[in-house]
Design a protein around this nucleic acid. Sequence first.
DNA 1: GTGTTACATTTGTATCAACAAATAAACATT
DNA 2: AATGTTTATTTGTTGATACAAATGTAACAC
Lengths: 151, 151
Amino acid sequence: MKIEDELKSTVEYSKSKQIVLNIMYTVNVITERFNDIIKPYDISSEQFNVLRILRGQKGCPANMCIIQERMLAKTSNTTRLVDKLLLKDLVTRNVCPDNRRKIEVLITAKGLDLLAELDPKVQEHEEFFAKNLNNEELEQLNTLLEKYRTK
Amino acid sequence: MKIEDELKSTVEYSKSKQIVLNIMYTVNVITERFNDIIKPYDISSEQFNVLRILRGQKGCPANMCIIQERMLAKTSNTTRLVDKLLLKDLVTRNVCPDNRRKIEVLITAKGLDLLAELDPKVQEHEEFFAKNLNNEELEQLNTLLEKYRTK
DNA sequence: GTGTTACATTTGTATCAACAAATAAACATT
DNA sequence: AATGTTTATTTGTTGATACAAATGTAACAC
């Protein structure tokens, strides 16, 4: 469905405006569905994102800087995100012995269990939309997005 | 730049995960730049969005339902968004005489002036990214996004 | 070793978003 | 005309976000 119709617009947008609104709108569609998935598990999508980053570290502790640069939304407050995860025993947080300015954050077994439980649901979510495109189209979309955001 | 590199990932993602992260990341890149533009004007991007919807009404008042269904983020609180615009004299709000459950929201001359001032900057913003793609690629990207989010 | 700068993270504050519950008017039914 | 139902909007509350300023630590110059 055209973006003008999704947003019930009476006027047609320029190509470049269409793209911006189209991407923004698509994110909201994706996010809405994703939030439904993780809602029963009592974590936010950004908290989930941090957990996934920590798992990606494969046992190697991550400091705040590393988490920040791997997060989707760079403006999020990493400290308070980790605070929340700490309260739920999904991560541990310790001052780095080599450099006391740094913080070592690690995912716990409980955190890993939660991710393992979510994995199939998250995969299903990703494939729910991806199944609308064939393999070549998926490649194209990825490539176009990469090219689009070049600064 | 590949999404894995943007997010400094050590592992490669599945195609479907790439798309989700790619779209999410691209929105953040777009939004970050857009917020820089509107920041000096002391309105949020959602407030700007509501103003644009109201201008699109071409003098015809919009009620809350109409605004809501045309907004990008359907979960936003329209009442309080309009509150903020009202405080800045960018819109007017009146009870609809025909149906007192409804509210008639109109953009003011001041609101229209603000939009007129922002128009070239917003257009420049949209074209900043769009210029990375040729006309055919822009079409393709729009089409792929539409197809992708089919439910 | 003292002072300066850079780095890593936290905290304060004000604003904004999410979701459920509440209100209030219009419409339908008997 | 009283009753229940639907529609349109608002409000309460809790939690998240954004940005600036503050804190504490390390590194380096001299």
